[in-house]
Nucleic acid binder design. Structure first.
Lengths: 324, 324
DNA sequence: ACCATAAACATAACAAGACATATAACTTGC
DNA sequence: GCAAGTTATATGTCTTGTTATGTTTATGGT
């Protein structure tokens, strides 16, 4: 009996778990309402309750107040209108607005729900939450507030890092950043020099790409190249981050973006050649999914003197979408 | 700007809030995956992750492991198979089972997700949860466990109370329970006596109903009658709970059930007549939604000497379903 | 005064879950 | 050894949410 994967990666699968939990609870509430003879669905209570508490509202106001999308409200209101629980009229001076209000029957059903359903649900939920009720609800509250202030997608990218495309003004930076790390750890091979001095001719014009990372306040701090070495095949190389800018995950950010980029290009193979002396880099490659690969070593290993590590990213012929 | 109703009744609307939260988070995760060129939907990660962690599984095993319904798994697996990420085969000796396993491409996409998407999501969620991460996740865990042990619908009904229908053996109880409270607070009117001694003839055979509450270990502790006083019209009366059994919410339970019952009967009017001396009872009526009503007082108030309170339940012509 | 833009709502397509029920493969009891 | 029940999966329909896009009504600039 395998465990629950959702529990093993709790932060990753939090959303799925919350949904699963909510689904179960709503199902039970619906059953309770049904037993009482009310046809109101659990999700409709919030709309009716909003109308009861704050009086008639337009579709847009409801969407705002309930935190749901406008189409969700439109449909739900239409359904409730069909059931005879709300009325939808054009009362506003501005004829675009539609005002939703409780009908007498809607108020009656709400009274009934408040008597028969709500207290039961609240008691059951309190029982379920046992001691942690206050705390848990406060936390949900805090999460909602935090999410409203800064949505999740703004929390994805490491703050203050930005990807920049190649341009001739930045060509010199490409050489400079790479010279820094190559010279401190190895020595420049002739092949290196050629590429570093003529990035446009040697990389871009051969179908490859060069990208830069900019750190807020510091300017460009890193770069990386994708060399096209065949149809649907790219070599990741000449990746470097300035010594002065280490520790802000610029390399990880850049590498991630490169993988995404290669996928967007619809490539079939992405590999890289490196040296075990660059332990930090190799570790990063491993962390992001690159795997040591003998085949790559045999096929491309001879290209650089310093090469003793060859890695392949598991792409498979997938996700080939139009390049952005 | 009206507030958020979901926050004002937190226990009641917990499910809706969780769903709203989950929906927002999943939306953002989907956008992240899309940016990387992965077509995998957030909800599908859990299936793929389960396969990766525990190896090939049958549909049923997945349903079990992930805590979702079997149809949900069947459909999701079919979709993933169509995308080429999983294979579905009959490998089992028992030809009914279907085994779902990751294809090479599925493994590749998982590797990519693990590199590009998962760490970002985890970091973002941790950022969102800020300090409360451990605690919050532990609470979600506790709630899931509690819900698995005792589902919400088992937490609805007050423990140990049960509704019983009328039968001739219980006819005497009907009289006895009502005599207790009437005699202590008022005096028995002739109309009372007649009804209490002949419940079948005076109530049941006239289209009314009589119900009892049984408390675990104590036997029948309360009763209530619905007198049919017209087409689709019922009077709630002769409701009593034994002195010895007060404090266990038997009256509330009974009254709730009566309202539900009347709705099931498709009634248009439900009213009751009482006296302000029975303050506890009147308070209960108010709590469950009955409203003081002058019309009812004028129409029926003369029927009992002791009547100085008349109440109406807001039924409206609604929820008229077939009687159970 | 009129046309472009914006705002409020409607509609369509889709996602991901639920339950109910159908179908096919196995098991069991007589 | 076969009918009857059980079990594993498939399918239909509903709920409740989402985007994306279409319509209609206001508004504002030339």
């Amino acid at each position: 009996m395998s465990g629950d994967i959702l529990k093993e990666r709790p932060a990753l699968f939090l959303a799925s778990r919350l949904k699963r939990l909510a689904e179960r609870m709503q199902g039970d509430v619906a059953a309770l309402g049904g037993a009482v003879g009310l046809e109101i669905q659990p999700a409709q209570y919030s709309l009716l309750a909003t109308l009861e508490a704050y009086g008639p509202q337009t579709i847009g106001e409801l969407s705002q107040a309930m935190g749901l999308s406008q189409p969700a409200i439109t449909r739900n209101a239409a359904k409730l209108a069909q059931m005879g629980l709300v009325a939808i009229d054009r009362l506003h001076k501005d004829q675009r607005h539609k005002t939703v209000s409780l009908t007498a029957r809607g108020e009656a059903d709400m009274a009934c729900s408040k008597a028969l359903v709500w207290p039961q649900v609240e008691a059951a939920v309190r029982d379920l939450l046992a001691g942690m009720e206050t705390q848990f609800l406060a936390q949900i509250d805090a999460i909602e507030t935090a999410l409203a202030q800064k949505p999740l997608h703004q929390r994805f990218a490491p703050a203050g890092l930005r990807l920049l495309p190649f341009s001739d003004e930045r060509a010199a930076l490409f050489g400079a950043i790479n010279r820094e790390w190559i010279e401190t750890m190895y020595r420049l091979e002739p092949a290196d020099l050629d590429v570093l001095d003529h990035p446009r001719a040697r990389i871009i014009e051969k179908g490859g790409e060069i990208w830069f990372v900019e750190a807020q306040g510091l300017g460009v701090v890193g770069t990386c190249a994708l060399l096209k070495t065949g149809e649907g095949q790219y070599e990741l190389g000449k990746m470097g981050v300035l010594e002065a800018a280490r520790g802000r995950k610029a390399g990880e950010f850049l590498l991630r973006e490169m993988i995404a980029r290669v996928r967007a290009l619809g490539a079939r193979r992405l590999y890289l050649l490196s040296n075990s002396k660059s332990a930090a880099a190799v570790h990063l490659y491993e962390k992001l999914g690159f795997r040591h690969d003998e085949g790559i070593m045999r096929e491309f290993g001879a290209r650089y003197e310093r090469c003793n590590v060859a890695m392949l990213f598991p792409l498979s012929a997938t996700g080939a979408k139009a390049a952005a």
